[in-house]
């Protein structure tokens, strides 16, 4: 890997890492959600400093160029992240629905006495 590519990738990973940590520090991002993004930065750094691992992976998946491997991994990562967010969204929708039901039950309005049963 040429030196300028290394410097570029390394800077990008570090900048991203600092940005994620700063978001967590400013309470814009929950720490449990920052772990995944921190690991992304670390993965990029691993490939920069241990380029052979990327070449090895390329051979394993049958790709020709390491850039292909990177694109495939990036795409897979984004797909899984989106799926993870859909799961979280479903969970939150269920919680919001249950909360709204509880609020509605608490604020039930009655006009006159309930009819005898």
């Amino acid at each position: 890997m040429p030196l300028n590519q290394r410097i570029f990738a390394c800077s990008l990973a570090l900048l991203f890492f600092v940005f994620v940590i700063d978001l967590a520090r400013r309470k814009k991002l929950r720490v449990e959600y920052s772990v995944l993004w921190c690991l992304t930065s670390v993965s990029i750094l691993v490939f920069v400093f241990w380029y052979d691992s990327l070449v090895f992976l390329t051979g394993m998946i049958g790709a020709v160029l390491p850039t292909t491997t990177l694109f495939i991994m990036g795409l897979m990562f984004l797909m899984f992240v989106n799926l993870h967010f859909s799961v979280k969204l479903s969970e939150i929708s269920e919680q919001v629905k249950n909360l709204a039901h509880e609020i509605a039950l608490l604020s039930i309005k009655k006009e006159g006495p309930e009819k005898p049963e």
């Binding site: 709204a100 039901h101 609020i103 509605a104 604020s107 039930i108 309005k109 009655k110 006009e111 006495p113």
Partner: peptide, 20 residues
């Protein structure tokens, strides 16, 4: 609904759909 006596009314805080 409230104009009719003996009918209980629950108002949902936002549109939840038929199933909700």
């Amino acid at each position: 609904v409230l104009a009719r006596s003996g009918v209980n009314l629950i108002r949902l805080p936002f549109w939840m759909g038929y199933g909700g």
